[in-house]
Amino acid sequence: MKTRAFLRLICLGCVCGLMHAVGPTPVTAQEVEWRLDYGKARQEAEKKNRPLVIDVGTEHCHFCKQLDLRTFKDPAVVALLNDRCIPLKIDADQHPKLAEALRVEYYPTLVFATAEGKILGYQQGFIEAGALHERLTKLFFTSAVAGGGPNPSHDIEEAKRAMAVGDYPRALALLKPVAETAKDAAVQKQARQILQDLEQQAAGRCAEAKQLVESGKVPQAVETVTELVRVYPGTKAAREGGQLLVTLASRVVPHENARTQVARELLEQAREDYQRRQYLSCLDRC
Score class of each variant (00 low, 15 high):
residue 19 M to F: 02
residue 20 H to L: 09
residue 20 H to A: 14
residue 21 A to T: 10
residue 21 A to K: 08
residue 21 A to S: 15
residue 24 P to A: 15
residue 25 T to G: 15
residue 25 T to C: 15
residue 27 V to G: 02
residue 27 V to S: 03
residue 28 T to K: 02
residue 29 A to G: 15
residue 29 A to W: 14
residue 30 Q to V: 01
residue 33 E to F: 02
residue 34 W to L: 14
residue 35 R to E: 14
residue 36 L to S: 14
residue 38 Y to Q: 04
residue 39 G to H: 14
residue 41 A to W: 01
residue 42 R to N: 04
residue 43 Q to A: 15
residue 43 Q to P: 00
residue 44 E to T: 10
residue 44 E to H: 12
residue 45 A to W: 02
residue 46 E to N: 10
residue 48 K to V: 05
residue 48 K to G: 02
residue 49 N to V: 07
residue 49 N to R: 11
residue 49 N to W: 00
residue 54 I to F: 06
residue 55 D to F: 12
residue 56 V to T: 09
residue 57 G to T: 09
residue 58 T to K: 08
residue 59 E to V: 10
residue 60 H to L: 12
residue 60 H to F: 13
residue 62 H to S: 09
residue 64 C to R: 02
residue 66 Q to S: 04
residue 66 Q to P: 02
residue 67 L to T: 08
residue 68 D to T: 04
residue 69 L to Q: 15
residue 73 K to V: 12
residue 73 K to L: 13
residue 74 D to V: 06
residue 74 D to W: 03
residue 74 D to M: 06
residue 75 P to N: 05
residue 75 P to A: 08
residue 77 V to W: 11
residue 77 V to R: 12
residue 78 V to I: 13
residue 78 V to Q: 06
residue 80 L to Y: 00
residue 83 D to Y: 11
residue 84 R to V: 08
residue 84 R to P: 01
residue 85 C to F: 15
residue 86 I to H: 00
residue 86 I to N: 02
residue 87 P to Q: 13
residue 88 L to G: 08
residue 88 L to W: 04
residue 90 I to S: 03
residue 91 D to V: 11
residue 91 D to C: 12
residue 92 A to P: 11
residue 92 A to H: 06
residue 93 D to A: 10
residue 93 D to L: 12
residue 96 P to K: 10
residue 97 K to L: 06
residue 99 A to M: 06
residue 99 A to C: 07
residue 99 A to F: 00
residue 100 E to I: 01
residue 101 A to L: 05
residue 102 L to M: 04
residue 102 L to K: 02
residue 104 V to I: 07
residue 104 V to H: 01
residue 104 V to A: 07
residue 104 V to F: 00
residue 105 E to G: 07
residue 106 Y to T: 14
residue 107 Y to K: 00
residue 107 Y to V: 00
residue 110 L to T: 06
residue 112 F to D: 01
residue 112 F to M: 07
residue 113 A to R: 03
residue 114 T to A: 04
residue 114 T to Q: 01
residue 115 A to T: 07
